[in-house]
Amino acid sequence: MWWDGIVTREALPAPPSRAPDLADDFTGPDLREDVWIDHYLPHWTTPSRSRARYDLDGDGLRLRIDEDQPDWRPEDAPLRVSNIQTGNFSGAAGEDRGTHRHRPDGLTVRSPGETRLLWTPSAGRIDVTVSAATDPGSMLAVWLVGSEHLDPRDSGEICVFEIDAEAVRGSEVTARTGIKAHHDDRLRTDMTEVTVPLDATRPHTWTAIWGPAGTVIGCEGRVVARFAQATDYPLILMIDLFETGGRSHTYPKTARIHTLRGWHA
């Protein structure tokens, strides 16, 4: 039973009746190049550091952090990431223009590349089914972040969820969710924690619905958070597995993405 201590959580709206604009079950022998870039914000670092480690094994996409994997940037160590994303934008080498200027310590472009906008809705819905990581020091996250290719202010983020391995507790899980303004002064950062009664190591579905009426976040068909604000510019979908606490325990550290459905509004 879905229960927040006061009332039963309301049901999410049904998905659109039409076919999704993006659907991926990760069943092919290779990651789809028409949808995914298998590097984490590659313009801020170098290819060997941004490249994702993953398997496609018939049960979705298994993201990995391997023992020999380098830190995303030497300046940020310890921080290792395996990520897939549906677009990317960067300025020229040495500039500070690029997707997701999320760090306050002066990111500059090291590996400039062409602008690639493979799936970047300005409003819509995504349903993503995942199994969370349980390896100590790891975190699974799904974000929608502004591409910034039109305007540096278009940098806001819809954080669908961030789940720390330590927050996966048998029959319940606590996740962070909400809005991050970053460099968009039209937004305000509004993050919250939600606890939902499920085994997050098993497949479960998170939903984000956003548009002029605001943003709704759901899990397993129920609303877990509402926000009056939303972005209104192209967003890049990012699915990330992080290791933030330094090398420890056994490897690989893993999380799994089973299916994804997305609709433009």
Results as ranks from 00 to 15, higher is better:
G245S: 10
I163D: 02
T45W: 00
D24T: 00
A14K: 12
H102V: 06
T254Y: 01
P15C: 06
P42R: 07
E67I: 04
K253H: 11
D24F: 04
G218M: 10
W44H: 00
R103H: 12
T45R: 00
D21N: 14
P234Y: 12
H39N: 10
T201D: 02
R261W: 09
R64E: 13
G5T: 06
E157H: 10
H182R: 12
D151C: 06
D68N: 09
S111R: 02
D71V: 09
G156H: 07
A52C: 08
E148A: 09
P197G: 15
P136H: 08
M238I: 09
R49A: 11
D59T: 03
R247I: 15
D34T: 04
L117S: 14
E193C: 04
L241F: 03
G5E: 08
A255W: 01
G5H: 09
L31Q: 02
D30M: 05
L63S: 05
R32P: 08
P252R: 13
T192A: 13
V7W: 05
A213I: 04
T250Q: 11
G156C: 07
S111I: 00
I209M: 12
V168P: 03
G91N: 12
P104Y: 02
F161T: 00
R62K: 14
D25C: 02
G262Q: 09
R80A: 09
L150R: 15
H183M: 07
E166T: 11
L22A: 04
D127Q: 13
R110S: 10
G218I: 06
G246T: 08
P152M: 11
D154P: 03
V160C: 09
P121K: 10
